[in-house]
């Protein structure tokens, strides 16, 4: 395995993490806009609060890795798709700041919160759409992000994000919300979007000519997820849903078949980066694990409390 292969693998790991964690935060933004009940919004805000900034850094990781390890690829993509990518960047600005403002003004003025909610929700849809459209256009070898494959991939990405968010939030609702009906509602959102996204993903991959066992894996994991949701296995479904979404991404990566070796940076560069990531990882990975565990720790405590009452 060449250094370039390792770099590609790291970029794919970063992209997957961004889809599975950052993507779910975008999906949560969509649900925040659609949800009518305050209890649902509360769950979303509390679940996202401590982790969304760390989840966002995966995108920075992917970009920095790409421009350092494969500079011509980064430059080519950025030149060709500067419009949708600038749109995504603005979406990221509006989404992140609207969320931070909304949280700080909690319990303050209603009008302010309503404005932030719209900004937060709409930008949470625009960003994954734009990113997905660019990824889909590149994967399909098409030229324009407004082409059918681009539009299809954009919608699919938004759907995947919404699905992941609903799945994760079902557990969070059970953990955070005193009202058992909240988890039930997220469960129904998850079942609904899961069915829609599955129906969207399979025919699309056949039309686009993805011939890879990954599609089968995705379909299987998607089905298992629906069953697990149905049976209210909310922790297990997090894993199977993540597998279903992740394998769509890997399928697209296989489809794109980019020739990266010719574009790779010199080994001396990649070596320094791998060492830096290795040393950084020693601090970073335990810290990341701690972050997630810390804010998931009191899992189930509400049920206990409810039962005690």
């Amino acid at each position: 395995m060449s250094y370039a292969d390792v770099a590609v693998a790291l970029i794919l790991v970063g992209l997957s993490a961004y889809l599975l964690f950052g993507g779910a935060d975008f999906g949560a933004g969509l649900w925040h806009l659609l949800a009518r009940r305050a209890a649902e919004k509360d769950v979303i805000e509390h679940a996202m609060g401590p982790v969304w900034e760390a989840n966002h850094v995966w995108l920075i990781f992917v970009m920095v890795m790409t421009w350092t390890a494969f500079p011509p690829v980064f430059a080519g993509i950025m030149t060709a798709y500067w419009v949708p990518l600038s749109l995504a960047a603005l979406g990221i600005v509006i989404r992140g700041s609207a969320f931070a403002f909304m949280k700080i003004e909690h319990g303050f003025k209603i009008e302010h919160r309503r404005r932030y909610r719209w900004a937060f929700g709409v930008s949470s849809v625009v960003t994954p759409y734009a990113l997905g459209a660019v990824a889909g256009t590149i994967a399909a070898g098409d030229r324009h992000w407004l082409s059918p494959p681009g539009a299809y991939a954009g919608l699919l990405t938004v759907g995947l994000c919404a699905y992941l968010a609903a799945v994760y939030l079902t557990w969070d609702a059970r953990r955070l919300s005193p009202n058992a009906a909240t988890a039930e509602r997220f469960r129904s959102y998850a079942l609904g979007t899961g069915a829609v996204v599955g129906a969207l993903a399979l025919p699309g991959s056949i039309v686009l000519g993805v011939r890879s066992p990954l599609i089968g894996l995705s379909a299987l994991a998607g089905l298992v997820s629906l069953v697990l949701l149905w049976r209210r296995a909310y922790l297990a479904v997090r894993l199977s849903a993540a597998l279903a979404a992740g394998s769509v991404l890997w399928g697209a990566a296989v489809l794109s078949d980019l020739d990266l070796d010719a574009a790779a940076a010199h080994d001396a560069v990649l070596r320094v980066i791998f060492v830096a990531l290795g040393v950084g990882g020693i601090f970073l990975l335990p810290a990341l694990a701690w972050l997630y565990v810390l804010f998931q720790r009191e899992a189930g405590s509400h049920e206990d409390r409810a039962r005690a009452r």
Partner: peptide, 30 residues
């Protein structure tokens, strides 16, 4: 893009290390 294309790999290590620092910052901010 042409700046990045030609020289991205030369100065990229600085950005990669910055990225690690951001990660640590964002995790502990949370």
């Amino acid at each position: 893009p042409r700046f990045m294309d030609t020289y991205g790999q030369v100065f990229g290590a600085g950005f990669a290390m910055e990225g690690i620092a951001f990660f640590i910052e964002a995790i502990f901010i949370g």
